[in-house]
């Protein structure tokens, strides 16, 4: 396990997505109704930054082609062809911690 502090819970507004850099790894943090989730920063489709995406309930949508996922599990919804990868996350004393033992990447192939 390699739990690293990524941000404070206050750094990401509710239903917002924000990128953070931890060492060389860029992590996208989502605050979905007060629950926090973390992903690689790009859409698995065409590397569009998911920070430009949108959250509605438990659905995350990429702005480019509206691929949608269950943001809690990464499962595809509607038109997405690949699932979203998720980092393990825990919140402790107002800090968002992410297990960055291994950087998650998409194949793009």
């Amino acid at each position: 396990m390699s739990w690293r502090r990524v941000c404070a819970t206050d750094d990401v507004d509710e239903d917002e997505l924000r990128e953070f850099k931890v060492g060389d790894i860029t992590v996208l943090v989502a605050n979905a109704g007060g629950e926090f989730f973390a992903y690689p920063p790009f859409c698995p489709h065409q590397e569009t930054p998911l920070s430009l995406g949108m959250i509605d309930g438990d659905t995350l949508t990429c702005i480019k082609h509206l691929w949608q996922w269950n943001l809690k599990t990464g499962e595809t919804r509607e038109n997405a062809e690949s699932p979203l990868l998720l980092y393990e996350v825990k919140v402790e004393e107002g800090e968002v911690l992410v297990n960055l033992e291994k950087e998650l990447r998409y194949g793009y192939q």
């Binding site: 949108m54 509605d56 702005i63 509206l66 509607e78 038109n79």
Partner: peptide
């Protein structure tokens, strides 16, 4: 287009296939 996409998905709640 981006601002409209956001509104259609998060306010109008259209599914992607309806956009």
């Amino acid at each position: 287009v981006d601002a409209t996409l956001r509104a259609l998905v998060t306010e109008a709640r259209l599914t992607p296939s309806a956009i």
